[in-house]
Amino acid sequence: MSADVAVPGEVTVAHAYAAPPASWRLLARKPAFVAGAGILLLWMACAVLGHLIAPYDPLAQQLLARNAAPSGTHLLGTDPLGRDVLSRVISGARDILTIAPLATLLGAVLGTALGLIMGYFGGIVDAVISRIVEAVLALPVVIVAFLFVVAVGPSSLTLIVVIGFIFTPLIARTVRTAVLIEGQQDYLPAARLLGERPAYIMIAEILPNVLPVIVVEFTVRLGYAIFAVATLSFLGFGVQQPTPDWGGDIAANYGLLGAGYWWETLFPALAIASVVMALNLVTDSIEQVLSS
C-alpha cells in the first residue's frame, strides 16, 4: 500500500454479541507480557527466597578477596569489603520489591478514594484538592520524598508512607478524570433515581468501571516507585547500608569505577534496569489489552 493510502486506525467489526475473551488470556498470548512477567517473577523469587538462593551471606566480608573480579568462585566478583556481589544483588531485591509495591498500594487506595470523591462531587472539594495536587506536582517526586525523608529520618516505613502520600494526589487526579468521564454516562442518574446514596454509587456503580484505569495507573506508578526508591537509596536516603540494596550499593561503589572495578556497580545497575524494563513490558501489555 502506498503511503498516500495508508489510514491510521482500525475498524473493529463487532464480534458477535458474545463475551469478550478473558483479559488474562489475551495477556498470556503476548510475548512481551510473558517475558516481563517472567523476569519479575524471578526477582520476586529472589526477594522471598534470597537467603536460600544466594551462594554467600550478602553481609559476610572476606578481607582477602576485596574487589575481586568476576570468577568461578564469585560469579559477579566482590565489593571493596569482599562481599559477594551476586549474593548482594539477589538479596537486594527484597527491600525494593517490598517498599515500592506497598507504597504504590497505599497511594492507589488513598488516591482512588480521593479521586472518586473529587470526580463525583466536584465543586469546592474538587477545587481545593486540585490545588494541592498541583502544588505537589510542582515538585519532582524524588525531591518531595527527599525533603520528607530527610526531615523524618530514613526507614522502610518512612519510604512507604512518603512515596504513598506523594502518589496519592497523582493517582487521585487520574481517577478523577476517569470518574468525570463516567459521570457523563446515564447509568448514574438512573442510579440516583433508584434512591441510591452517593457512597453506593461511587463504590458499586463507578468503581468497577474505572478499575481498568486504576490497574494501569498502579503498574505505571509501581515503575516510578521503584525509580524513586532506587534513587533515594542511591542518594543515601533510602535503604541504609550495610543492608544489601541496589541503589545503595551503587552509591557506595561507583567512586571506584575509575579504578576499573566496574562489576560492583554495573550488576546492581543492570538489576534495577531489568526490573524496570520487565515492569514496562507488563504495563504496556496490560494497557494494550485493556484498551482494545
Binding site: 457523563q184 454516562q185 446515564d186 447509568y187 442518574p189 438512573a190 442510579a191 440516583r192 433515581l193 433508584l194 434512591g195 456503580e205 468497577p208 468501571n209
Partner: peptide, 26 residues
C-alpha cells in the same frame, strides 16, 4: 432528589436515549 419520598421516587422513572450509557456495563 434525596428529599423525595420513596413513593415519589417510585413514581417517576426514565428510559434514556442510549442504553449503552444508561446501563452499567460491568
Amino acid at each position: 432528589l434525596p428529599k423525595r419520598t420513596l413513593e415519589q421516587l417510585k413514581a417517576l422513572q426514565i428510559v434514556f436515549q442510549n442504553p449503552d450509557s444508561a446501563l452499567n456495563r460491568r
